[in-house]
Design a protein around this nucleic acid. Structure first.
Lengths: 107, 107
DNA sequence: TTCATATGTAATAATTTTATTACACGTGTA
DNA sequence: TACACGTGTAATAAAATTATTACATATGAA
């Protein structure tokens, strides 16, 4: 993960990570890439809900999905993790928060 | 910040940090401690709303508040930052997610 | 006494996030 | 053809988070 992030990007990542299912998704995909239905069964949630969570993680650039055609001709959507390393300290947050554009009175 | 966190504790911190006002609060308190009304003016938000945000940050152990009596006799509640350093990688999340107790079907 | 400035919280409203239900479509196999 | 198993999404409901309004209390200074 890039080291010079904006405040908005950091916030997006933090939002993406602030949900137990999404942490679990990362944990599962850390072990092996999976396709959507498989992952939904694994987590015990519906596909529509899983899509929502995957979308947030993907938008934060924490994972990436792509289609593949299986041997038996089925279209499968696989997701896999992007590698990342983010350090959170009060100082880093103080620096990045100057580039936050969201939800401020004056905007 | 302690280095051996549980999944639930990590999640609490991530939830606390996933809001632009709360990142701003950290940024302001990184520069100097402030009392509640002062901080509210600084952010341009109401005290009740600020209390809500402060509470989430305090529950995640990112800051701490205490009362002081000013020279002119007013009771002031000051908040100051706790120092923290949290590293987020896919591996760390994978490890901690096993100790997540929230929102899982079987609970 | 009245004003300005603190703290604190209860009740409610608005908004966003999370979750469910019900579809549509496609392919290989029995 | 019917079934099992994939993808994808629209519409809606439920729940949680965020925000506002309206109070109550206290102190010092004008």
């Amino acid at each position: 993960m890039k080291d010079n992030m904006t405040g908005d990007e950091l916030l997006k990542v933090l939002e993406a990570l602030s949900n137990p299912y999404r942490l679990q998704i990362i944990s599962i995909l850390y072990q092996e890439r999976q396709y959507v239905s498989q992952l939904a069964r694994h987590l015990g949630i519906s596909r529509p809900l899983l899509y929502l969570h995957l979308q947030k993680l993907e938008e934060a650039n924490l994972l990436i999905g792509h289609h593949e055609i299986s041997k038996n001709g089925k279209a499968m959507k696989f997701f896999e993790l992007n590698s990342f390393e983010i350090k959170l300290t009060e100082q880093i947050i103080a620096q990045l928060s100057s580039s936050l554009t969201k939800k401020r009175k004056g905007d």
